[in-house]
């Protein structure tokens, strides 16, 4: 570290204050965090399913029909079983793959 840099160095206090303020700004209700999503089967429209794979593979966006019962979409926790799915026996999305009923 050069002398000039040392003289102009940002103090530990400044860094701590900025970090503390940033943490206050980012404190969000837990439900909004993306980590609280769940896989929801039977609600994705054709080609709009999520996947951990990606383009050029045969997974994301690969579902062939609307509301395909073995294709999932990542949805906020608690919303899946309230999302309409015409192929589902319960009428709503499910947390597991299911056997589609004929609509």
């Amino acid at each position: 570290m050069t002398k000039l840099l040392y003289q102009n160095a940002i103090s530990a206090m400044t860094l701590a204050a900025a970090l503390g303020a940033a943490l206050t700004m980012t404190a969000t209700p837990a439900a909004a965090a993306e980590g609280d999503n769940e896989k929801c089967y039977g609600v994705a429209l054709k080609g709009k399913n999520d996947c951990k794979s990606g383009p050029g593979t045969s997974c994301a966006g690969s579902s062939k029909i609307d509301f395909q019962s073995d294709a999932w979409k990542s949805l906020p926790k608690g919303t899946c079983e309230k999302t309409a799915s015409p192929t589902s026996p319960t009428g709503f999305g499910q947390l597991q793959e299911f056997k589609a009923q004929k609509s």
Partner: peptide, 22 residues
């Protein structure tokens, strides 16, 4: 962390450490 915060503050007058960290 300290080197980075200093270098960017000097190079970018509009830089705001708190909002960037957030």
């Amino acid at each position: 962390f300290g080197e980075t915060a200093l270098a960017v503050s000097v190079a970018f007058p509009d830089f705001d450490l708190t909002t960037t960290l957030a």
